[in-house]
Amino acid sequence: LETFPLDVLVNTAAEDLPRGVDPSRKENYLSDEDFKAVFGMTRSAFANLPLWKQQNLKKEKGLF
């Protein structure tokens, strides 16, 4: 999966995202380093959170 810089994904409308980016899964296009910096946890820890908590975190970080 291709990764993009944080500033390309945060608070970006679906139509302005790079081609192929799923707007409902912007976090998947962050590098592992950016993911950890944004969410303060690994991808696996994030995946283990309840869906509502994942969505709330994504909203807080501008990735929803």
Score class of each variant (00 low, 15 high):
L1I: 14
L1Q: 13
L1G: 12
L1P: 11
L1M: 13
E2Q: 14
E2W: 08
E2H: 12
E2C: 15
E2F: 11
E2P: 15
E2G: 13
T3S: 09
T3E: 06
T3D: 04
T3M: 08
T3C: 09
T3F: 15
T3Q: 08
F4Y: 15
F4R: 02
F4T: 03
F4D: 02
F4M: 06
F4Q: 04
F4V: 06
F4H: 07
F4I: 08
P5V: 03
P5C: 05
P5F: 04
P5I: 03
L6A: 06
L6C: 06
L6Y: 15
L6K: 05
D7W: 15
D7M: 09
D7F: 09
D7A: 13
D7I: 09
D7H: 15
D7K: 09
D7N: 11
D7L: 10
D7C: 13
V8E: 06
V8C: 11
V8W: 14
L9R: 02
L9M: 04
V10N: 04
V10F: 06
V10C: 09
V10E: 05
V10S: 07
N11K: 10
N11L: 07
N11A: 08
N11I: 05
T12R: 09
T12D: 06
T12M: 11
T12Y: 07
T12A: 11
A13N: 12
A13K: 14
A13C: 13
A13W: 06
A13E: 10
A14N: 14
A14E: 14
A14C: 14
A14I: 12
E15P: 09
E15D: 11
E15G: 11
E15H: 12
E15R: 11
E15Y: 02
D16R: 08
D16Q: 09
D16S: 08
D16G: 08
D16H: 11
L17M: 06
L17F: 07
L17S: 04
P18F: 01
P18W: 01
P18G: 04
P18I: 04
P18L: 04
R19A: 15
R19S: 15
G20D: 07
G20M: 07
G20L: 07
G20T: 09
G20V: 08
V21I: 12
V21D: 03
V21Q: 04
V21R: 02
D22S: 04
D22M: 04
D22Q: 04
D22N: 08
D22I: 06
D22Y: 03
P23M: 06
P23Q: 07
P23T: 06
S24Q: 13
S24C: 15
S24G: 10
S24A: 14
R25K: 14
R25Y: 11
R25H: 15
R25F: 11
R25N: 09
K26G: 02
K26T: 08
K26M: 15
K26W: 05
K26S: 04
K26L: 15
E27D: 04
E27L: 03
E27W: 02
E27T: 02
N28K: 09
N28S: 10
N28G: 05
N28H: 11
Y29S: 07
Y29D: 02
Y29V: 02
Y29G: 02
L30G: 01
L30P: 01
L30E: 01
L30M: 06
S31Q: 04
S31T: 12
S31Y: 01
S31D: 07
D32I: 07
D32M: 06
D32G: 05
D32Q: 07
D32W: 05
E33R: 09
E33W: 09
E33N: 10
D34P: 00
D34S: 05
D34Q: 07
D34L: 04
D34Y: 01
F35M: 02
F35P: 00
F35K: 00
F35V: 01
K36R: 14
K36F: 15
K36H: 15
K36M: 15
K36Q: 15
K36W: 15
K36T: 14
A37L: 14
V38T: 10
V38F: 06
V38N: 02
V38W: 04
V38Y: 05
F39Q: 00
F39G: 00
F39K: 00
G40A: 10
G40D: 10
G40N: 14
G40S: 09
G40Y: 05
G40M: 10
G40E: 11
G40Q: 12
M41Y: 05
M41G: 00
M41Q: 03
T42E: 13
T42S: 13
T42C: 08
T42F: 05
T42A: 10
T42K: 07
R43C: 03
R43H: 06
R43F: 07
S44R: 13
S44T: 13
S44M: 13
S44G: 12
S44E: 14
S44N: 12
A45D: 13
A45G: 07
A45V: 12
A45W: 07
A45H: 11
A45Y: 09
F46I: 00
F46N: 00
F46H: 00
F46A: 00
A47Q: 12
A47K: 12
A47L: 12
A47W: 10
A47H: 13
A47S: 11
N48A: 14
N48F: 10
N48P: 01
N48K: 13
N48W: 07
L49I: 06
L49N: 01
L49R: 00
L49E: 05
L49W: 04
L49Q: 05
L49G: 00
P50M: 02
P50D: 08
P50W: 01
P50G: 03
P50H: 04
P50T: 06
P50Y: 01
L51E: 09
L51P: 09
L51Q: 11
L51S: 09
W52F: 09
W52S: 10
W52H: 10
W52G: 08
W52Y: 11
K53I: 13
K53G: 06
K53F: 13
K53R: 12
K53P: 00
K53W: 11
K53A: 12
Q54T: 01
Q54K: 07
Q55G: 07
Q55I: 15
Q55S: 09
Q55V: 14
Q55M: 14
Q55E: 14
Q55D: 13
Q55F: 10
N56E: 15
N56P: 00
N56C: 15
N56D: 14
N56M: 14
N56A: 14
L57A: 05
L57F: 06
K58A: 04
K58P: 00
K58T: 02
K58W: 04
K58V: 04
K58Y: 04
K58F: 05
K58I: 06
K59V: 12
K59F: 10
K59S: 09
K59D: 06
K59Y: 09
K59H: 09
E60R: 08
E60Y: 06
E60G: 06
K61R: 09
K61C: 08
G62Q: 05
L63I: 07
L63A: 02
L63G: 02
F64C: 15
F64H: 15
F64L: 15
F64Y: 15
F64A: 15
